[in-house]
Every structure is written in structure tokens, then in C-alpha cells.
């Protein structure tokens, strides 16, 4: 049996005296596409931020190829690409300059020239215009162009389909599938129904604390979230 690339055991996270999820188990194997589900405010972004090592406010074990992820952090980050829910695109720079910055900071070689990646996401002719004239969907596409440039194996995508049109969604889905087929792994959050076969679903509502479970402050009972249906 292969070891999972990322494994979370008994992950427990709290924000503002509210338990977002507890005893969360997650195994991501090469070739997996994992869709994290849950209503707004259920901690999807928080989970992704924990998986990308941006946030360390959690309890439990997180492993990268069977070893503690935070000890192997640099090796892990070399294999990671994270697209946050903010596009991380500077509006005063052109799409090409933005992507040059991203590829400059990452390690490893580029898969495609930047112009080709921008063509793939439908921004042909917009390579050298400042990003502030682009629409919200086009800004998101600039960020998505990184997926064509990165050699990273693990993709963590927070709402990648926001503001993307139908054609773009289809192109992105096929890109994710291709990445998974090549042995990569994808973790993403989205409220859309993915038209992909073999998507694993992780519903955060399955990891809610049991009723009446108040780990640290028993007197904050009134502020507890309702548990899911």
C-alpha cells in the first residue's frame, strides 16, 4: 500500500472559542482530488491554511510522506502550490510581471513559457496591460495561470472557480483531472458541483464536536455553533 502524501490525524481547530472541526482525519494519495465541503464559516479556508502551513493554530498530527510536516516544511513547500481566495495579483503590474514574480519565488523549472500559460487561461493579448483594467474573472485567471507554470505536485486551491465563466470552469476541471492523472494531488474548496469523476469529498460537518462539547470555556455555551443537519 502506498503511503499518503499528506495525512492528517485527529486535527482539531478552534477559532474565537468556537470549535471549527475536531478529530478530522484526512488522507491524500497521489492522484486524489479532494473537495472540502461545508457551509460558509465552517472552516474550509482555515483547513486549507493549515494544510499549506500558513496557519499553525491547530492540534493534531499532520504528515508529509509519513513524516511530521512541519519538520519537513521546506521539502513540502517545494512541492506545494497554494491559490488563496484572494488572487494575490498586484493590480499595478501586468499579468506577465505578476507571473514572473511567482515563478521567481518558487523553485524548479517552468513547465510552460508565461505567454503560453496566459494563452491557456484565455488572456492572450492581455499579457502586458496593467491588471487594474482586467475584470474580476480575468484577475482570477491570472492567478490560475500559475497552475500551468508550476512543477508542484500538491495543489491547494481555495475557491478557484470564483468569478470564472463556464468555459473556464470546464478548462480548469480538465486541468485538475490531468494533474491528478499525472500523479499529482488536488485539495480544493468550491460550492460548485464538480463534473469530475472520482472526486473524494470531505464534509467538515462530519467533524463537528458532539453536542455539549465545550473544550475550554464551559460558560460560552450560548455562542456555540449549531451542528449540521
Amino acid at each position: 500500500m502506498t503511503t499518503p502524501v499528506i495525512e492528517a490525524r485527529g486535527l482539531h481547530c478552534e477559532r474565537d472559542e468556537r470549535v471549527l472541526f475536531c478529530r478530522l482525519q484526512l488522507q491524500i494519495y497521489p492522484g486524489d482530488i479532494v473537495q472540502v465541503e461545508g457551509p460558509n464559516g465552517s472552516g474550509k479556508t482555515t483547513l486549507l491554511r493549515i494544510l499549506t502551513t500558513v496557519s499553525r493554530e491547530f492540534q493534531g498530527e499532520l504528515c508529509w510522506r509519513g513524516e511530521d510536516l512541519h519538520r519537513q516544511r521546506l521539502d513540502y513547500l517545494n512541492h506545494l502550490l497554494y491559490l488563496g481566495h484572494l488572487p494575490s495579483v498586484k493590480k499595478a503590474l501586468s499579468p506577465r510581471e505578476n507571473l514572473q514574480w511567482f515563478s521567481g519565488m518558487g523553485s524548479g523549472h517552468k513547465q510552460l513559457p508565461i505567454a503560453r500559460a496566459l494563452e491557456e487561461v484565455g488572456l492572450l493579448g492581455f499579457e502586458d496591460v496593467p491588471c487594474y483594467i482586467l475584470s474580476a474573472g480575468q484577475l482570477r485567471r491570472v492567478a490560475l495561470a500559475r497552475l500551468y507554470l508550476t512543477p508542484a505536485q500538491i495543489w491547494v486551491l481555495d475557491e478557484p472557480f470564483t468569478a470564472i465563466d463556464k468555459q473556464g470552469v470546464a478548462a480548469l476541471e480538465s486541468l485538475l483531472q490531468e494533474h491528478a492523472r499525472g500523479g499529482g494531488s488536488v485539495v480544493l474548496t468550491t460550492h460548485q458541483n464538480l463534473g469530475l469523476a472520482g472526486v473524494k469529498r470531505l464534509n467538515l460537518m462530519d467533524f463537528q464536536p458532539p453536542q455539549g462539547y465545550y473544550p475550554y470555556s464551559p460558560d460560552s455555551a450560548g455562542e456555540e455553533p449549531e451542528t449540521g443537519p
Partner: peptide, 22 residues
């Protein structure tokens, strides 16, 4: 500030380079 607001700061923190030099 601007890097924080548009999310680039997160990208900086998880780039596989020493944050000191960044």
C-alpha cells in the same frame, strides 16, 4: 500592507525560500 491585503504575503510566507532574505 498591500501584500497583506491582496494575499501576496501568504504566498511569500509559503515560498520555499528563506523568509529572512525575502
Amino acid at each position: 500592507r498591500s501584500d497583506f491585503e491582496d494575499g501576496s504575503l501568504e504566498q511569500l510566507l509559503i515560498s520555499p525560500q528563506p523568509l529572512y532574505l525575502m
